[in-house]
Computed example of a mutant assay.
Amino acid sequence: MIGDNNQTIGEGRVVTVFGGSGFVGRYVVRALARDGWRVRVACRRPDLAFFLQPLGRVGQVVAVQANVRSPESIAAALRGASAVVNLVGILAETGAQKFSSVQAGGARTIAEAAKTAGIDNVVHISAIGADPQSRSAYGRSKAEGEAAMLAEVPATVILRPSVIFGPEDDFFNRFATMARYFPFVPIVGAETKFQPVYVGDVADAVAIALAGRAKPGVAYELGGPEVKSFAEIVDYVLKVTQRQRRVLKLSFGTGKLMASVTQMLTKLSLGLFPKLLRMTRDQVELLKHDNVVSDAAKADARTLQGLGIADPQSIESIVPTYLYRFRKVGQYQTQRLGESASR
């Protein structure tokens, strides 16, 4: 948990949060507003970010237009700001949204603008698996983004979470949805390990870093209290949603073949191919490696615990609260309300 004096940490100063209208962003905005920051949410469609305003006091949260491919808009979003958070990222390339332009080039543009504005209180969200030598374009672009940030603002705090879960996630919800509609759930890399981290804990880590309680220029790896294989995670989803489904454990070769097909269908359909069924070859490449906090990070206290979050939320304490809706009878135990009473 964060300390009790959160309300005075921001002291009314402005923090610009790039990508603040996304899944992780809404939790980061709430955490920063709680700490007293005036939060400026920089996003491509500020007209779609009005839902963030109730997360703070009247006028405390404001959305502005910005695009990481437009240096002028980035500079404008940083005017008068004391701190910067970069949450911009994509899981797959679509149209003009490329890993190189968003996660590498975008980070560089934000870092250059922060340096020009004289801002050195910067937090950058990357990912476990960021590696300049990675065979995955996603992994390489994440590493390039980190390097660009540190080159321009050496004090930048890098946060590398494992897969992030929460009510709006695209991980647990994805497989629960598949189990609802299909008689089987295909997965690639069944034995690959993950260390899912709760989105609220990631947001608290951002707030702690901005408050100056993280080591500058250091990369922290964020993982929850449990390490599970991909197969174990899907089995857990099926258990919580009470769905009897067969889990198809596909080889990496088969996965890449399927990914090639879905990528082609997505392109031919002009993006209308169902997102639920999409998979990319790059994502298959990522699944060849475990996504867990490294021993080196643990030894150096570059973890949630090292940031003061001693008891991160577990999968079991959060996930069932939003996967119940995927059960045939929702949160109810039986199909008919009177059935349980007659037993």
Rank of each mutant, 00 (worst) to 15 (best):
V153K: 03
N67M: 07
A207L: 07
R135G: 07
G20Q: 06
G308I: 03
G271R: 00
R69K: 10
V28C: 02
P46N: 11
P161F: 05
R30Q: 15
Q65K: 15
A76G: 12
I90K: 11
T16C: 08
V84F: 04
N86I: 10
K228N: 14
G145V: 07
E221D: 08
P167L: 14
R180S: 15
M1K: 12
G306I: 11
A205M: 01
Q263A: 08
I233A: 09
T16Q: 05
G56L: 05
P71Q: 13
V202K: 00
G3K: 08
Y324R: 14
Q263T: 10
A209K: 01
T266C: 10
G105H: 04
G22W: 01
L337G: 07
I208V: 14
R26H: 01
V62S: 09
I233K: 06
G271Y: 01
M279T: 14
T303H: 05
V64L: 13
M279A: 13
G95V: 02
A179I: 06
G95W: 01
I158S: 08
M178P: 01
L268R: 12
G129S: 05
S317I: 09
R40Y: 11
A151T: 14
G166M: 08
V88E: 01
S82A: 10
A190I: 06
I233F: 10
T192K: 03
P225F: 06
N6W: 11
M1V: 13
N6K: 11
G105A: 09
K215F: 03
G22L: 13
Q333T: 12
G105Y: 02
G56I: 03
R45P: 00
A176V: 14
P154A: 04
G223M: 02
K328S: 02
L222W: 08
R160F: 02
S126D: 05
V237A: 06
Q335T: 13
S134M: 06
K115P: 00
G330L: 05
F175V: 13
V28N: 00
I90S: 12
A207V: 00
T8N: 07
I187R: 04
L287D: 03
G306M: 11
Y27K: 00
L48G: 11
V28R: 00
A111M: 09
D295E: 15
V237D: 05
A296L: 10
R281G: 15
S340E: 10
I9Q: 15
L87N: 05
V88H: 04
A299C: 12
E72P: 03
D169K: 06
T321L: 14
N86E: 05
P183H: 10
Q53S: 10
S162L: 04
D295W: 07
E226N: 11
I318Q: 15
F175Q: 12
V185W: 01
V247P: 01
G105S: 07
N6I: 09
G22H: 05
P54L: 03
H124Q: 14
K256D: 13
S136M: 10
S141N: 13
T321E: 15
S340T: 09
Y220N: 01
